[in-house]
């Protein structure tokens, strides 16, 4: 826990930068006292978590403990669900993304997301899928610049070598694992500061999973990654820090323990954490 406090202090000492040059911002994400509801049903209670810049934070815990809801709160996807509400603050480099003066789309442009189920635009070509984020936000690249960005994004996502000869093929022509990496490339092409991943490998075979995990490690130096996973080995392999969520039956979820991944897996402070990471429940 001291480690957390240290890093928290560190983020507080960071100057609030107004330099929005892509890839250059520190990109620390801080959730502060976050609670969430769907209608009258509370799903999260007072969750505070710091996700340090350019490191991988894994959110682990049994099903139904609010991990995915928490993740969706981090880029304002939560509010798309009718009846969704929340309390608390989510700060990206000190600025509350729920500030009424900020438009949700601005936050989402800086905080990208990869979903559990790969969702490329199926009829769009691989090339256009990668550039879709730019097109959707009213930015256009032409010719060589566009091709360079496509190549760079696909390389970052570890997909370039497999698709370089068929960039005009539709997104849906790829295998499941390739589609997921295409989605990662698509999310990276807008140069987000943070990338959220909601169980990105749960529908993939072991080989594809390994490729995606390699991708996560490779991009971790460029963007802050927050990943929800049910796979303890995966959490151990890819993350620098971990937060263990838990919810009693019918009760809102909360964080039991958080800290460096090695500490969570090897020296957990809470017996429930120890039980969970060792596969004794959940």
């Amino acid at each position: 826990m001291t480690l957390l406090d240290d890093s928290h202090d560190q983020t507080l000492t960071l100057p609030v930068t107004h330099d929005r040059r892509p890839g250059s911002t520190p990109a620390t994400l801080v959730a502060d006292g976050v609670s969430a509801w769907f209608g009258d049903h509370q799903v999260l209670e007072d969750v505070s978590l710091t996700m340090p810049a350019r490191r991988v934070t894994a959110l682990i815990g049994p099903s139904g403990c609010g991990k995915s809801t928490f993740l969706r709160i981090l880029n304002r996807m939560h509010e798309l669900v009718p009846g969704a509400a929340l309390a608390g603050e989510v700060r990206l480099d000190g600025e509350d993304i729920y500030d009424p003066a900020r438009r949700p789309i601005e936050s989402r442009r800086r905080i990208g997301m990869v979903f559990q189920k790969a969702n490329p635009f199926p009829t769009m070509s691989i090339h256009d899928n990668v550039l879709a984020g730019l097109a959707l936000t009213g930015r256009r690249l032409r010719g060589r610049d566009a091709d360079d960005l496509v190549e760079h994004s696909l390389r970052s996502a570890g997909l370039w070598d497999e698709v370089r000869t068929r960039l005009d093929a539709p997104g849906a022509s790829l295998s499941g694992g390739q589609q997921q990496r295409l989605c990662i490339a698509r999310a990276l092409s807008v140069r987000p500061d943070v990338l959220l991943m909601d169980e990105p490998c749960s529908a993939l075979d072991p080989t594809s999973t390994r490729r995606v995990e390699e991708t996560i490690r490779a991009i971790a130096g460029e963007v802050t990654v927050v990943i929800v996973t049910h796979n303890m080995h995966q959490a151990h392999r890819v993350s620098d820090r971990c937060a263990f969520f838990l919810a009693a039956e019918g009760q809102p979820g909360y964080i039991v323990e958080q800290g460096e991944t090695d500490d969570i897996f090897e020296r957990p402070q809470d017996t429930r954490t120890a039980d969970y990471v060792n596969g004794r429940f959940g």
Binding site: I105, F115, N119
Partner: peptide, 16 residues
């Protein structure tokens, strides 16, 4: 899934 994919990329409702 595709709707959310577009929105998560920062699309406006109209763009989505």
């Amino acid at each position: 899934g595709e709707r959310e994919g577009a929105i998560a990329l920062g699309a406006t409702h109209c763009g989505m």
